[in-house]
Design a protein around this nucleic acid. Structure first.
Length: 481
DNA sequence: CCCCTGTTCGG
DNA sequence: CGAACAGGG
């Protein structure tokens, strides 16, 4: 009699789940297990938005399991203790999971595999969340990639050989009779007071939500993706990032669906498909980097920046909180930060703009921004967050050179020309003419008053002079160049 | 997945 | 005088 644990982590789906599929082939009884371990020694404990998502995703998974006469077993505690207890209690013979790439998880999983393997449990782990795992490709000199373009070129050569997604199983196996489980509610993942209304109205965590979102994106947005993806005022992006983070859908499924969706379509559609795939490529690249350079979640990949004087300006709590809460007086930045706080998500173009302001103009350490994103994003992901912040801060490997300092006015005019995005999140600016919406402080006072805006009252004065702070940043950078 | 400054060029 | 381009941080 064989009994398997399928240890769910961030692979909260039934389709294209190799750990689950293998268990179904090789065992008679299956325990679908989730272990909540809030005390793990990570500097990156999931934030409130992420926990909110996790709660709903676990709920969705447990419902899906129930529909097939199985159920999710929820435990809490140190993972090896929990696993050992269940393995002994239920005579578990097989342990299956899908791999993750956060440095301490890689290490922990390795220890667990060793320990249980030598205790006679068959342990096996799989790739469920990447197209190409970090150790599968290297540069010509056999090193990890540090530059995106050659990385992605190499990946593209291998796309054709990537496995098709595994179909959703049409029958599961029951867990042992009477097996105990904590309730989902007892994990306390939901916020104490209800700030989550903004989230509930736009997101649908869980596998069903993920598949619907992919379908909707492919059917209604993909052909316009290449032109719309940079316009934060349009719903042009896939918005799959939180679903991907929790593994409610995997990139193999997207790749496969993308192939089917663009088969035989005109060039424009293929440009869009390629463009979208490239964004998945950045996700792959981020995981490649965090795996091979596990220090980078706190330390710059580019050694020139090890002694860079981050935090060269006032570093005051008020300045930081003005940035966090969208009160900097710079509309495109405030719009982004408010979108983040209300929805747990921010358009990628705007992420770059707000990050550039924080690290270059306001002179804060990039980790300060990374932490805020970590706590507020529903898609908070160590690999992507690290890549993103090091990229804009200029200290990553293939980062934007430090001297690429975004000008939020120019960015606003270019990517939000009519101010649709800005006005959506900053209704105070509803009546200001389009041409001034990105820099209200440069507008003639009388015109502002006609628009019913008084800077410093209804909307803040800018907290930073863009020109001089830019000069300051460049002069600091000069010293380490 | 940039910005600024200076220069040239066409109207 | 704006658009287009080159050069450099």
């Amino acid at each position: 009699m064989t009994c398997a644990i399928v240890w769910f982590r961030r692979d909260l789906r039934l389709t294209d789940n190799p750990a689950l599929a293998t268990a179904l082939q090789s065992c008679r009884t299956i325990i679908p297990l989730y272990i909540h371990h809030p005390d793990d020694k990570t500097p990156w404990q999931p934030g409130a938005a992420s926990r909110w998502w996790l709660h709903h995703s676990l709920y969705n998974l447990s419902q899906a399991l129930r529909q097939q006469s199985s159920r999710l077993v929820i435990e809490r505690g140190e993972v090896n203790v929990v696993l050992r207890r269940l393995i002994n209690k239920h005579n578990v013979t097989h342990l299956f999971w899908n791999r993750l790439y956060d440095p301490w998880i890689v290490e922990r999983d390795h220890v667990i595999q060793q320990a249980f393997q030598s205790a006679g449990v068959h342990c096996q782990c799989f790739n469920a969340s990447l197209l190409i795992e970090p150790w599968k490709i290297t540069t010509r000199s056999d090193l990890p990639f540090r530059v995106f373009t050659p990385f992605w070129n190499r990946c593209q050569q291998l796309l054709a050989s990537i496995d098709h997604p595994i179909p959703r199983p049409d029958a599961l196996l029951p867990p042992p009779k009477g097996i105990a489980s904590l309730t989902l509610e007892s994990l306390g993942l939901l916020p104490a007071h209800t700030w989550d209304e903004g989230l509930t109205s736009i997101w649908h965590p869980g596998e069903t939500g993920a598949l619907n979102q992919l379908r909707r994106f492919l059917d209604t947005r993909l052909t316009q993706y290449i032109t719309d993806r940079e316009i934060p005022g349009r719903a042009g992006t896939s918005r799959l990032s939180p679903h991907l983070h929790f593994g409610e859908i995997g990139p193999r499924q997207i790749l496969h669906a993308l192939g089917a969706a663009t088969m035989g379509s005109a060039d424009h559609g293929n440009d869009s498909a390629r463009g979208y795939l490239r964004e998945l490529g950045w996700r792959e690249f981020a995981h490649h980097l965090i795996y091979h350079f596990p220090e980078t979640h706190h330390s710059p990949l580019n050694p020139n920046f090890h002694h860079f004087p981050w935090s060269w300006r006032d570093e005051s709590a008020e300045t930081l909180s003005a940035w966090q809460y969208g009160e900097t007086g710079i509309p495109i930045v405030d719009a982004g930060m408010r979108e983040l706080r209300h929805t747990g998500w921010m358009h990628n173009r705007v992420r770059m703009i707000v990050a550039s302001l924080l690290t270059k103009n306001l002179g804060f350490h990039w980790l300060e921004g990374a932490r805020w994103f970590w706590n507020t994003l529903v898609d908070a992901n160590l690999a992507n967050n690290t890549l993103g912040w090091q990229w804009t801060a200029g200290c990553g490997a293939d980062a934007a050179p430090f001297f690429r300092i975004f000008n939020p006015i120019r960015q606003g005019k270019r990517f939000d020309p009519k101010g649709d995005y800005v006005r959506r999140w900053i209704p105070e600016l509803a009546t200001i003419p389009d041409k001034h919406v990105h820099a209200p402080w440069l507008v003639d006072k009388r015109l502002l008053i006609n628009s019913g805006i008084e800077l410093g009252k209804s909307y803040p004065q800018p907290i930073i002079d863009l020109k001089s702070s830019r000069q300051q940043a460049l002069s600091h950078w000069h010293r380490i160049k």
